[in-house]
Design a protein around this nucleic acid. Sequence first.
DNA 1: CGCATTTTTGATATAGGTCAAGAGGCGTGG
DNA 2: CCACGCCTCTTGACCTATATCAAAAATGCG
Lengths: 240, 240
Amino acid sequence: MKTLSPQEAWSGVADCQTCTLRDSVLFSGLGEKEFECIHSPIDIFSLPAGALLYRAGDEGNFMYTIRSGLIKLVQYLPDGSQRIVRLLRGTDVAGLEALLDQRYQHDAVILQSTEVCRLPVEIVRCMDRENPTLHRELMSRWQRALMEADAWLTELSTGSARQRVARLLLRLHNTENEQCELFSREDMGAMLGLTTETASRIVAEFKRQGLLTQLSQTRYRCDIPGLEKIAENGPVSSAD
Amino acid sequence: MKTLSPQEAWSGVADCQTCTLRDSVLFSGLGEKEFECIHSPIDIFSLPAGALLYRAGDEGNFMYTIRSGLIKLVQYLPDGSQRIVRLLRGTDVAGLEALLDQRYQHDAVILQSTEVCRLPVEIVRCMDRENPTLHRELMSRWQRALMEADAWLTELSTGSARQRVARLLLRLHNTENEQCELFSREDMGAMLGLTTETASRIVAEFKRQGLLTQLSQTRYRCDIPGLEKIAENGPVSSAD
DNA sequence: CGCATTTTTGATATAGGTCAAGAGGCGTGG
DNA sequence: CCACGCCTCTTGACCTATATCAAAAATGCG
């Protein structure tokens, strides 16, 4: 019955009415009445990095609200090569297409350990009928995904490799502490349309130039202004 | 009051109830009742190639159903270079973001002379409230745009220049007559993330190889199987 | 018919791909 | 606790695809 990967880990049944994320989440703005739509339980899952949330082509029976973590949406080309088309993080919704009775369009793979609420589509459909706010919220999610997709194209698939890497780092970095959590060079390549080697070379170069400072295995401190300069000016302004 | 470009051409007021495109268009499946939402008139415009439907950043007061023609959605990077993120054609909807009170995300520029119905957002919002079918139709438009955006990334921004051009041609070609209408090399480049020169070289090469046969200024006959081969196998299999 | 724009072509430079090897981590099992 | 093997990251050397710069051809427009 469950379609989660072997690494799945059921970690409870959600109580949406007392949800800590209630404000930022899909179901914000719902009243008593709409919760009557919840006939089947909404399960919460904890998934480790590497786990598969769903696979492209699977029947879309669930949507997922991401509570925390990071997920990549991967699409395959006829020749077998893969491309990461989007990242999803806290408060994003995965599997919107399920609402339209479509099969999933991507593989959804956990990049950083993630907690999700699994929403049966019938529930969301029911609520969508009852509640204009959710309805609007759904459209807004779609629009957000679309803007993200467009940005992915213009920012991360245009310009030199250095620019792309810089732009990716700027997207990933946490505004508060100027830090970011990097993932494998292979994934970076698949996001930017570069080879693993090129991604590696550029990250290494950024480290040497002090634009990135490694704090731990995957954690880095970013020189935001420096990266911004690179993101815009393609050409290197080596020393001045 | 109107926000269309100088080249605008008002060409009538739509009568949606007798619309010839009624079946395929956003408003399919509407009944008498919903048409009561149409308080202000829905105008039809004919726009020549080069005209601007709307500009990125403009206040989104209208959505547009495209009756015929071809429109490019253009996004600009900080450095001024541009990238075409999507094409819209007959039965597509431009300016969905207006429904969410957002400003337009792109410049929408006419590539091939186009007829559009201009829908004031209030009308669409009103109908969306009244009619679940339209509601679903809207979500489905968003999803379609999203799939298109993803495909743009995986098909048109990945692989060698030859592959990309081939894939673009396959996307553009009319299934019935194996023909396609090409546009400027500059636009092709902006769609594929290539320079104008590279786009030109490859089109020229395809012509020499007989994969494309020029029928008129912008019209070509395409060797579909040949192009498909190139779209998949990166490497050239020159002669066999 | 001549000017402006776009397309094509050429010559050259270079960014990034490819192939290959070494280095560093990490987990597993002895 | 150490050693081995696996995997990812890094680095090097080389090569090719595409960008770049430039000019000539073609096309369209007034």
